[in-house]
Amino acid sequence: MGLFDRVWNAAKSMAVGHAITIREMFHRPVTVRYPEEKPPFERGSRSVPVLKVNEATGLLNCVACGLCERSCPPSCIEIVQAVDAAGKKKPWPETFELDLSHCMVCNLCIEACPFDALEMADVVELSSYQVQDLIFSKDQLTELWKTSKALRVAGGERI
């Protein structure tokens, strides 16, 4: 290839690139301006496991069976079962704590729960400067369930 060909090809390839960029310039930007306009979450987006409230009774579905605690790989759920004055165990959790700083949002606890007590919320603005703030208590998790579009996807169902 002679020098002239090389120069010609180089110029041509660069002209193609410039044509592409100038064409893109006159298209609408694809940016979503995040805090002002929030992109919609897809149905079933996962961000944090939350405790579901039973519509009929207004109580938690959770019976403190501890299956989710055991199935959580990084062990970030801690459940203490409620006991009454006589020392008898009660079917609800006294405390239900979730350490979101460890949680890898894997959905395994939700699949493990046989009582439909856990769901995945789709709130992502949970960051904090203090790592202690990422340990969510039972009330906080219930609150999150109420304020988000939580959903349970498990067991090969079709979405």
Binding site: R46, M104, V105, C106, V153, G156, I159
Partner: peptide, 24 residues
């Protein structure tokens, strides 16, 4: 990906024995 698996980057989508959920 988010629509199908619920996550954008770290999907956690496969399960031993198949997939977590089906796609429509």
């Amino acid at each position: 990906m988010e629509k199908a698996t619920g996550a954008r980057m770290l999907y956690g989508y496969n399960r031993i024995g198949g997939l977590r959920n089906d796609v429509g």
